[in-house]
Computed example of a mutant assay.
Amino acid sequence: MDLAAARAALQAASRVAVLTGAGVSAESGIPTFRDAQTGHWARFRPEDLASPPAYRRDPVMVWEWYAGRYRDVLAAQPNGAHHLLARLEREKGAGFFLATQNVDGLHARAGSGQGGGRMVELHGNLLSARDEVTGDVFPLAAPAELVTPPTSPLGNRMRPNVVWFGEYLPEAALEAAADAFAAAEVALVIGTSGAVYPAAGLAAETLQRGGIAIEINPVETDISWQMTHCVRDVASRGLAALLGEG
């Protein structure tokens, strides 16, 4: 790839749309969903822990799984990739859009969504839960105080505020992402396999309208063939190279 050309395109762009996946959080020690199925949880299929039928069958077990992931996420810290994306947002302002498939909240903790641009969490957020009756979202109590299943301030049981197998992505977030990628001059796809749709199709929206797409990933993905440029590195180093850091 031509790193100089990719860097110049990103620098010149006033509208930048970013999609991030598990590879961005891997450097913070956050395992992927399946990698987190170790020890006691290794005997379960993903659908046994993260689907509406599993929750109806055993909400206590499902919440035990998510409470452990919640503790792990809070113990992690944003890494260089998170901070560089927050800085890029401050530079681009209202022209910046970040859509993440991650549910760990690390982008927000690094400052994304607070620098003039916009961020959406396509798969929800582990740090919050949703009232099963009203749909209202509330932050979870601190791990030491968390009682599972948790109850909302309205007195109703709450479910994890994440998208499960068999569920649709939140419509408003997906529409906002599609609009942003369609309008973007540059799409950045970072740390995602490109195997899960509709998120994997977002960069194509940019390409179809004459923009360019840049992938940052240490390995080839299902959508690498579409990309204008590919940076073969982990998220933090790839972003640093693209932004001219170091």
Rank of each mutant, 00 (worst) to 15 (best):
Val219Phe: 13
Thr38Met: 02
Pro150Gly: 06
Ala26Asp: 05
Ala8Val: 02
Val147Trp: 09
Ala235Asp: 05
Trp41Thr: 01
Leu122Trp: 13
Asn217Gln: 01
Gly23Glu: 02
Leu122Ser: 10
Ala177Phe: 03
Ser152Arg: 06
Leu19His: 04
Ser14Cys: 07
Arg130Tyr: 07
Leu122Cys: 09
Ala172Cys: 09
Gly115Ile: 09
Ala142Ser: 14
His83Tyr: 15
Met158Leu: 01
Asn161Lys: 05
Pro218Met: 06
Met119Gln: 15
Val219His: 15
Trp65Ala: 03
Gly124Asn: 05
Arg45His: 14
Asn79Tyr: 05
Asn79Trp: 06
Ile214Leu: 08
Ala129Phe: 03
Gly29Pro: 13
Ala8Met: 05
Val186Pro: 04
Ile216Ser: 01
Leu122Met: 12
Ala182Gly: 15
Ala173Asn: 14
Ala108Ser: 10
Ile214Met: 10
Thr38Ser: 11
Glu171Phe: 12
Ala195Thr: 13
Arg90Leu: 12
Gly191Arg: 12
Gly21Thr: 11
Tyr55Arg: 11
Arg209Met: 06
His83Met: 14
Ala81Phe: 03
Glu245Gly: 02
Gly155Asp: 06
Phe33Ile: 00
Trp225Thr: 11
Pro78Leu: 11
Leu174Asn: 10
Leu146Asp: 14
His83Ile: 11
Ser152Glu: 04
Ala172Trp: 13
Ala183Phe: 09
Pro139Val: 10
Trp63Tyr: 10
Pro218Tyr: 07
Gly115Val: 06
Val162Asp: 06
Arg209Phe: 08
Ala176Lys: 07
His82Ser: 08
Leu122Asp: 04
Ala54Ser: 10
Ala187Trp: 01
Ala26Gly: 08
Tyr197Cys: 00
Ala187Val: 01
Glu64Cys: 08
Glu91Lys: 12
Ala4Cys: 04
Glu91Pro: 00
Thr192Gln: 06
Ile190Pro: 06
Pro160Val: 02
Asn102Glu: 05
Asp131Ile: 01
Ile30Thr: 00
Arg45Asp: 14
Leu174Trp: 13
Ala75Ile: 02
Gly68Val: 03
Ser152Cys: 05
Val163Ile: 14
Arg45Glu: 15
Arg209His: 15
Asp233Trp: 07
Phe165Asn: 02
Tyr55Trp: 13
Leu202Lys: 00
Arg118His: 05
Ala129Cys: 04
Glu167Thr: 01
Gly116Arg: 00
Ile214Ala: 09
Pro170Ala: 08
Gly155Asn: 13
Val16Tyr: 08
Arg209Asn: 10
Met119Trp: 00
Leu188Asn: 02
Met227Asn: 09
Tyr168Phe: 15
Val196Phe: 12
Arg71Phe: 09
Glu245Asp: 13
Gly68Trp: 10
Trp65Glu: 03
Leu127Val: 03
Phe138Thr: 04
Glu185Leu: 07
Val147Glu: 14
Ile223Lys: 12
Ala142Gly: 10
Ser112Glu: 04
Pro218His: 07
Thr32Pro: 03
Val62Phe: 09
Arg232Glu: 05
Ala241Ile: 00
Thr32Ala: 14
Ala9Phe: 11
Ala195Ser: 14
Lys92Arg: 09
Glu89Ala: 10
Val162Pro: 07
Ser14Phe: 07
Ala172Pro: 09
Phe97Glu: 01
Ala182Asp: 13
Arg232Tyr: 15
Ser112Met: 01
Leu239Lys: 02
Val219Ser: 15
Ser51Ala: 05
Ala177Val: 00
Ala177Arg: 00
Gly194Phe: 08
Glu245Ala: 04
Ala76Asp: 02
Ala173Leu: 11
Glu91Cys: 00
Arg90Lys: 15
Ser152Asp: 07
